Amino acid sequence: MAKEKERIKKHVNIVNRRASFEYQFLDKYTAGIMLKGTEIKSIREGKVNMQEGYCVFLNGELWLHNMHISTYTEGTYNNHEPTRARKLLLSKKELRKLEVNAQEQGVTIIPVRVFISDRGFAKVEIALARGKKLYDKRQDIKEKDVKREMDRSGY
């Protein structure tokens, strides 16, 4: 019983750190996500990988593809498929705005963070993002190094 309590976390906050390095975020949205029973249990255990995740519009609905939620260890034959497409839940106004902005060249929608809300629902923070060029990435690294040096010296 004690091991089960340790395995299931009360506060889940899984962040796609690679996304902030690869993309420049234009706008962020918080969306609900349609899950199966074993998927929410795996999320509460923290077994999510969003590195390859992206969002696509199909028939006016936003779908999340390639987000890997590991199979639940206690699951039976009813266990979920790890990389299945999951529907995201947003208001119509937000969906229309996202769909118009996503039509722009070089812009994509990516998952940034998965968390459990105060009410116990799984939420995904998605971002409208534009890919960074190599020189932008170098500039970011340079700024981080300067900031780190300033913090070390006591400024």
Rank of each mutant, 00 (worst) to 15 (best):
I126N: 08
V107I: 14
V124A: 12
K10Y: 07
D151L: 14
K142M: 10
E81S: 03
R130P: 02
E74S: 05
P111Y: 04
I126P: 07
R44V: 02
G120R: 14
E99P: 00
T108A: 10
M150K: 13
L26G: 01
R119M: 09
G53F: 12
K10M: 07
G75Y: 11
F121P: 01
E74G: 09
F121R: 15
L64Q: 14
L90K: 05
N79D: 15
T30L: 10
D136R: 03
D27R: 11
L90F: 02
Y23N: 01
I14D: 02
S91A: 08
Q103P: 04
M1P: 14
A129W: 01
F25L: 03
Y29C: 04
R152D: 12
R18C: 00
R17Y: 09
D151N: 15
L98K: 00
S42Y: 04
D27Y: 07
Y77W: 11
T38R: 01
K47P: 03
E6K: 15
R138M: 14
G106D: 07
G37P: 04
T76G: 15
K147A: 12
M1C: 15
L62N: 05
Q51H: 03
E6N: 13
R96L: 07
K5N: 11
K144C: 02
V56G: 07
E149Y: 05
I116Y: 05
G32D: 05
F21N: 02
N13M: 04
G46W: 00
L26M: 10
A129L: 06
Y23E: 00
D136L: 01
H65P: 01
M34K: 08
R152K: 14
E104M: 05
E149L: 13
K28E: 15
L26C: 01
P82H: 08
E52P: 01
E61N: 06
K92T: 12
